[in-house]
Design a protein around this nucleic acid. Structure first.
Length: 276
DNA sequence: ATCCTATCCTGGCTGC
DNA sequence: TGCAGCCAGGATAGGA
């Protein structure tokens, strides 16, 4: 699933193809993708706007729009499970799962493709309100070891659901939460306020190193869904220690990897490396 | 405060 | 071979 490393990869690759472009006609093939707004309203909001910048916050993709140099709102994207972004020549066939296309002034088209239709690309005027609820950026300076340790202590939640809570830390999803917990040697059901200081620091470092390594490899592609905007699969799935490895030996100790369900989410761990 | 369940969706898998 | 039924999973809303 697209999590922070996949979204970062997408943003890096589409940014040079979008910044400076002016949007022409919009073709909304699935209304909910644009937030349920009437087609005409979405089209009026984006047509003629110039893309000033493309950036990421957590798993959100933000596209700054302007008209005559003044801010004209934002396009906010979220890939959810199966969303993909492409900037391609006008003749490119976006396939049956194309949900939204925007014409660009260089003759290319920007496509939002999404099999399961959970993804969004919405026009908003108040982006700060939307992103304000997010926790710290895990690769940013504001994500300090001390703050993270305090955060764990001040709550009484199981580690896995807490790591998935975007208000606690922004950008982790099911894969990187499992991989980070394994790297730190912590059980996903451990209560956050009972995690010792040394363990909290280990988890903080594990989250950052796992995410950095995944970005270096352009994210993870373990099924047919995630691809970079250039159609390449990521390579971090080759580095998975626990995710999707149920029954296979732990690469650290040889114990078979266990799969449990935590908060409705498949959760993978090594019972020997990650004791409660 | 935290947890649990349902919802949104569809391709892919399982089992008959 | 065909088909019904179940499942995954990010985010959110509502109830316990």
């Amino acid at each position: 699933m697209p999590e922070l490393p996949e979204v970062e990869t997408v943003v890096r690759l589409i940014r040079p193809r979008l910044v400076g472009r002016t949007i022409g006609a919009a073709d909304v093939a699935w209304r909910r993708t644009v937030g349920g707004a009437p087609r005409g309203r979405f089209e009026r909001a984006v047509q003629g706007a110039r893309i000033a910048q493309v950036w990421r916050r957590g798993k959100f993709i933000a596209i700054d729009l302007e008209r005559e140099g003044a801010l004209a709102g934002w396009l906010v994207g979220h890939l959810r499970m199966t969303g993909r972004l492409h900037v391609e020549s006008a003749s490119w066939d976006a396939g049956p799962y194309r949900r939204l296309s925007l014409d660009l002034d260089d003759g290319r088209r920007f496509h939002f493709i999404d099999v399961r239709k959970f993804g969004r690309l919405v026009h908003v005027f108040d982006l700060p309100a939307l992103l304000g609820a997010l926790g710290p950026e895990p690769l940013g300076e504001e994500f300090t070891a001390e703050g993270f340790a305090d955060g764990l202590r001040s709550r009484r939640r199981r580690l896995k659901p807490l790591l998935l809570d975007q208000a606690f830390v922004a950008g982790l999803g099911n894969i990187y939460a499992d991989e980070s917990l394994h790297r730190a040697g912590l059980h996903p059901l451990a209560r956050s306020d009972r995690v010792g200081r040394a363990a909290a620091l280990r988890l903080h470092a594990a989250i950052r190193s796992v995410l950095r390594e995944a970005i270096e490899r352009e994210g993870s592609s373990f099924d047919a869904f995630y691809r970079t905007p250039e159609g390449r699969p990521g390579r971090y799935q080759d580095e998975f220690q626990v995710y999707g490895r149920e029954g296979e030996p732990c690469l650290t100790c040889g114990e078979p990897i266990t799969r449990i369900v935590v908060g409705q989410r498949g959760t993978h761990l090594c019972r020997r490396c990650q004791r409660r």
